[in-house]
Each structure stands twice: as structure tokens, then as C-alpha cells.
Amino acid sequence: MNEPGYAIRAEQLTKRFGDFIAVNEITFDVKQGEIYGFLGANGAGKTTAIRMLIGLLSPSSGIATVAGFDVYKETENIKRNIGYMSQRFSLYEDLTVKENIRFYGGVYGLSSSEIRDKTDFLLKKLELEHARNMLISSLPLGWKQKLAFSIAVIHDPKIVFLDEPTGGVDPITRRQFWNLIYEASSKGVTVFVTTHYMDESEYCDRVSIMVDGRIAALDTPRGLKRIFHASSMDEVFLKLARPEKVGDI
């Protein structure tokens, strides 16, 4: 076990696929209860990094712990302590809202009465009570996404990993989605979120920006803007991702 206070620690974590280095010696830590933004362009290695942390991929080298558990040996313990929402949509379209909640609650070992209480609470909070017995396929995308998030944290995990959770969602729904994230965070859940909406990164406590498999910058959004003399995260990102081109402009 490492010292308390850190939800995730990674040291020189690396993943190679043959000659290709997808994730190159990344080092960072995430404090408990923090909202940590994991940014990067498409193909920068974000998803590979997340997959190593949640136990779907075995790292090539480096050290990492999630909720105090080793990513090499203790993936079973990690899985019990995290929630995960992937960039691809993850509820069963041919099951109803209630059935989806019951299924995922059951997978994470919740009792029937807990699942019942959670279902009522959750549907009330999301104002989806009328949709209890509706098929997921009949819900609008924004609702599905909010529901998917609520289900990802249904078992009160220590850490929730969100891989581009707001893709394809309108700004209002995105705002509501972030309110859900804040609420979870206020209850002590650590949030590890990848996104490529730079405005969203402003909502994070700290962000790291990945470029070509490396962490190119890591600080608070305000700190990053100061260091890069930028007025917005958008600008920071552009300077980092394509430094020479930005210089040309």
C-alpha cells in the first residue's frame, strides 16, 4: 500500500505494441476526491493509458497503483473499487432502464434491496421516473449518457474512469453531465476523465495533456494557462500539440 491521499499513482508507466510506443513513461498522481482531466489529441495514447489503469491491458514497464492496488497483480481488487464508462455507449439497448440498473448493480454485488433503493433514488435525481420501464433504445442520447454515468457509480466506487463520456452530446446536456460529476466528486469519488473538449478541461481540478504517448504538461487549468501564456485551454492545447505550427502563425 502507498501513503493515503492518492487514488492513482503512475511512475514511468509504458505500453509498447511491437515497435510502437503507445504510452511512453508517463508519471502522474491523482489525489483522492480530485477531478483529474486526462487530455490529448486522438491517438495520443489516452485510451491505452486508461486501459492499463483499469486492468484491461498489462503495462510493458513502469509502476502504477489504483486505489492502492498494483495494476500488474491486483487487477481483481482494482475492478472492485472502480467504475468505468467507455467512450462507446455501454448500456443494453434492448433492456429497460430498470433492467439495466438491476443488471449492473448485480454485477457489482449490490443486494436486491440496495438495487431497489438506488433505482428509485437515481431515477428521481435524473427525472427519469416515467422512463423506468422504457427500453434504452428509445431514450435520447443525452439521457442515456447521464444514466450510463449514474450506473457507472452505482456501487459507490472510490474512483470512476470516464473515457470521453460527453462525445456527441449538446452543450446543455454536457453541462448537466458535469453537474453529475461534481456531485460524485463532492461525495469523495475520484474522477479520472478523458475528453477533447477543451472547455470541459476548465472544470477539472488538474489536467495533464498527452502528446505522442508522453505527458507534455501537468498542472491546474489556471497554472497551465499562465505557463503557456494562453487565455484558454484551447490555446494551451494547440501550443502543446503543434508547437511549431503555432509558432508559424
Partner: peptide, 14 residues
Amino acid sequence: ELGTMEILLVSPLK
């Protein structure tokens, strides 16, 4: 195809 397999693999299910 749906992406639910990934969620299942991240869950405590073996």
C-alpha cells in the same frame, strides 16, 4: 460491437 464487453471485463466478473 456494442462496447458492453469492455464494461463487463472491467467489472468484478471474471
